[in-house]
Design a protein around this nucleic acid. Structure first.
Ligand SMILES: [Mn+2]
Ligand SMILES: [Mn+2]
Ligand SMILES: [Zn+2]
Ligand SMILES: [Zn+2]
Lengths: 158, 158
DNA sequence: ATGCAAATGCAAATTATTTGCAATAAGGAA
DNA sequence: TTCCTTATTGCAAATAATTTGCATTTGCAT
């Protein structure tokens, strides 16, 4: 089962810094930019930090938020997500299914494998692939600003 | 300028089979499925086969079609594109900019590098990356059905 | 406590794509 | 060729995700 050479990739399960996002680190940073720390914002940030099922979309975040404060609105969820993304605190992914999904931007870079049957999102990282991408871009005369790598597949049966 | 080892990737400029798509091959295949070869369909297939600027979106295809027959409609363009995609004759890509873009599905697999300044789409292929993807999926217990790899970057200055 | 700009909620707008439906036309039969 | 059936079309309206206008509320510096 173990390959002769060290594995290139690894499952992206980082150290559990569950509460890193909502801890005042971010709130203070936001305050610094002149942004106001409102109740809806704190709530949304908390929800994103709660590593439940990963990569929720805006509607799912909205649902979870409503549970805790029914006065929140969907536009505010979108506005807050955009703000957090511009601040670099979260990342937005658009998988093939339409909606955008979000995740905290702490932890190292990784890409995704989507289970086509269950919708599950599995994270992985491959230094080799990252390097090859850089190399390819460089030889084409380009500098990569960002990239998108998604594998869509099904569990191997048996 | 040439690297010491053979290049893994290569620019995806295949043999120029410009008229492969619209030649009766496809039309007959479609006829076989019971589909009718209508004027709008022939037109759209021609447009896709005319390798002009690559990866046009539905609206662009619609514009080009209107030039040759002003009676065509946008829904018909979408319907025809969907049909061709289901038939495997074309591929649909959704880059970060929203709209979906289409290209004939002849030629070998390749991925894309998008010039963030000009919007230009550069094709490339890397056997190594493809292999690594397979390997990663396999070790995670998955079989890849399809994938998406897009590099977004800018021309290296100087 | 006050005041004001930033943020919110609601309704309406956007954008890309899809769908309902009556009219048209493809193409096999006669 | 002409007929006939039914797939396909064009148009208008519907979707679905996300965004925006605006009057009202709220954070927070004074
Ligand atoms: Mn992730
Ligand atoms: Mn291509
Ligand atoms: Zn990556
Ligand atoms: Zn590929």
């Amino acid at each position: 089962m173990q390959s002769p050479v060290a594995n290139d990739y690894q499952l992206a399960s980082f150290t559990d810094m569950t509460t890193l996002l909502d801890n005042d680190e971010l709130l203070n940073a936001l305050r610094q930019t002149g942004a106001r720390i409102t109740k809806p914002r704190k709530l949304i940030i908390q929800i994103l930090a709660d590593k439940g099922d990963e990569h929720p979309d805006a509607m799912e975040i909205f649902r979870r938020a409503v549970r805790r404060d029914s006065r929140i609105s969907l536009p505010t969820v979108y506005r807050t997500l955009k703000m957090l993304e511009e601040h670099g605190a979260i990342q937005k992914h658009a998988f093939v299914d339409g909606r955008s999904r979000y995740e905290p931007a702490d932890g190292p870079h990784h890409d995704h494998l989507i289970d086509m049957d269950t919708g599950a999102v599995i994270e992985f990282q491959s230094e080799k692939i990252e390097r090859l991408q850089e190399e390819i871009a460089r030889e084409l005369g380009y500098e990569i600003v960002h990239h998108r790598l998604e594998l869509y597949g099904r569990k191997t049966k048996a």
